[in-house]
């Protein structure tokens, strides 16, 4: 029962917050892309972090993988699946090793493109370091990567029947907007 509650709490935290925060997040650091808990249908990821004060950041990207009983690792396909994985069987595989970014101005952007990304769940970790090199703030974001072929077509709210749409267009043509 405890495990189920723990799993539910983890899933709710992942779904409700835009970012999963282990420590207080840095008010001067915003992850612009990828958006927390978003799903992208792509084989590359753009990382864009906005920094509005003098900071030293360490930025790392991991893929969250499940350790199977036979010792192999497998990718996860949803945040729900991630929530059900116990801490002992979760592995953080480094995709982009930690990079240090120095921000000296009022505004700067850390940008990086990760190419050749396979479907799975990825975690972006942004650590703010103090003058002694110790962690001051920690911010983590999850993004689900799906194959581009699975992207669903856009739906437009004003999908109407042909007759209704024709009438609307006809009236607009007569009376203008």
């Amino acid at each position: 029962m405890k495990k189920v509650i723990m799993a539910l709490v983890l899933v709710l935290t992942l779904l409700c917050g835009s970012c999963f925060v282990c420590a207080a997040s840095d008010p001067a650091v915003t992850v612009v892309n990828p958006q927390g808990n978003s799903t992208v249908y792509a084989d590359n990821i753009l990382i864009s972090v906005k920094v509005t004060a003098t900071r030293v950041l360490k930025i790392t990207v991991f893929e969250e993988k499940l350790l199977n009983e036979d010792g192999s690792l497998s990718s996860l396909d949803s945040l729900e699946a991630l929530g059900q994985v116990t801490a002992g069987s979760l592995r953080h595989v480094v995709v982009s090793p930690a990079e240090t970014f120095y921000s000296n101005g009022n505004l700067s952007f850390y940008t990086k493109e990760l190419k050749g990304i396979t479907p799975g769940i990825y975690k972006l970790r942004v650590t703010t370091l103090d003058e002694n090199g110790r962690t001051q703030y920690l911010q983590e974001c999850y993004v689900v990567v799906r194959p581009p072929s699975e992207a669903k077509a856009l739906s437009f709210q004003s999908e109407q029947s042909g007759v209704l749409s024709f009438l609307q267009s006809f009236l607009k043509n007569i009376f203008g907007n």
Binding site: V32, N33, N44, L46, S48, K50, F109, T111, E113
Partner: peptide, 20 residues
Amino acid sequence: LVYYGAASLFGAESSAVLPL
């Protein structure tokens, strides 16, 4: 050359695309 939208880079509602 791969470009990215200003929307992804800056979170702005702009259709401009820029190379990194």
